[in-house]
């Protein structure tokens, strides 16, 4: 069994090394297939970053009545934090709100004069709430109104709703596009690699015929092609990895201008093991399965 395995591996390696034209062509196509898959992984990473950063920019504010004590507001905050949907809650006291207001309207003398005319701080204490998912804001608003309706002056959900809905549409759009893009490119990658290997094996069908006639078992015929497919997959995965290092480095500058805070090269490096593992798996499995399927049709006894 071990001898057989050793011989099959040697035959596969020999074919890979000796049939250079065919090996280079299959590795080349496999690099394209693996690069497509790698590109999809990077695309998913970028899309996830964009979605998260868009979502983190949206929040709703709950304004409390002037009569409500700070302890009560902090109690509400504690209740909110316990909810699974809530990412974080920030308490803005009356004084802090005024401070921010003054800061924002520094140069606007009309507003500052009006504020002086009022005499006291007209702003309300509030809680700024961010959820994990923008679709949860309605749920949180309902929860606040049901549980603490008596303390609340208003929740600005309705004013924010159009923005939130637009964001919802945008994020689900990016996700749907990502999935479709992944499926289509994934299918293209698999088909291209599979057909190239099929063509390479088609050209060796006469050899397969000879192997059958001299009494080689199916496994002895198929094995070397499968080994060759595995080698093609490994070599292609290594080449793809090496190609993506300069490619992401080159892209990181322009992409960071487009999506601020996202460095694709850092993302690539921090996920390099997962990416290489995925490349290796795609290459090896694709090479192995394509070879096994392609050679099967010539194995009739």
């Amino acid at each position: 069994m071990f001898t057989e395995f050793k011989r099959i591996s040697r035959f596969g390696y020999q074919s890979f090394m000796r049939d250079r034209g065919s090996s280079v062509a299959t590795v080349f196509v496999m690099v394209i297939a693996i690069s497509l898959v790698t590109f999809l992984m990077l695309f998913q990473g970028t899309a996830a970053f964009v979605i998260t950063s868009l979502e983190s920019r949206v929040d709703i504010s709950t304004y409390f009545l002037d009569t409500v004590f700070e302890e009560e507001i902090l109690q509400v905050r504690d209740e909110l934090v316990k909810l699974d949907d809530v990412r974080d809650v920030q308490y803005i006291s009356k004084d802090k709100a005024l401070e921010k207001f003054l800061e924002e309207h520094k140069g606007d003398e009309v507003i500052l004069a009006s504020l002086e005319a009022v005499g006291s701080n007209p702003l309300l204490s509030s809680l700024n709430i961010r959820t994990w998912d923008s679709s949860s804001y309605l749920k949180v608003t309902d929860f606040l109104e049901e549980s603490f309706g008596g303390l609340i002056s208003k929740v600005d959900f309705e004013e924010r709703e159009p923005v939130i809905q637009r964001l919802d549409g945008l994020t689900s759009g990016i996700q749907t596009f990502g999935i479709l893009f992944t499926i289509i490119l994934g299918i293209v990658a698999v088909l291209v690699a599979f057909n190239t290997i099929r063509l390479a094996i088609y050209s060796t069908r006469e050899e397969i015929e000879v192997m059958r006639l001299v009494g080689a078992s199916n496994w002895f015929i198929r094995g070397p092609f499968v080994v060759q497919g595995v080698i093609v997959g490994i070599v292609a995965a290594i080449i793809s990895l090496l190609l993506f290092i300069p490619a992401t480095l080159f892209l990181s500058g322009p992409l960071e201008n487009l999506i601020s805070g996202f460095n694709i090269f850092s993302y690539f490096l921090s996920n390099i093991f997962v990416i290489f593992l995925a490349q290796l798996l795609v290459g090896v499995i694709l090479g192995m399965i394509s070879s096994a399927i392609a050679v099967k049709r010539y194995l009739k006894v």
Binding site: Q14, E206, E207, R212, L213, V214, V301
Partner: peptide, 25 residues
């Protein structure tokens, strides 16, 4: 049975007009 055909063929040596050698060996 088809699984035993390789064994059966090993009892016969074949020579063809077009040699049918494995080109990469």
């Amino acid at each position: 049975p088809s699984g035993f055909i390789p064994d059966f063929r090993r009892r016969i040596g074949t020579v063809f007009q077009d040699y049918k050698l494995l080109p990469m060996k």
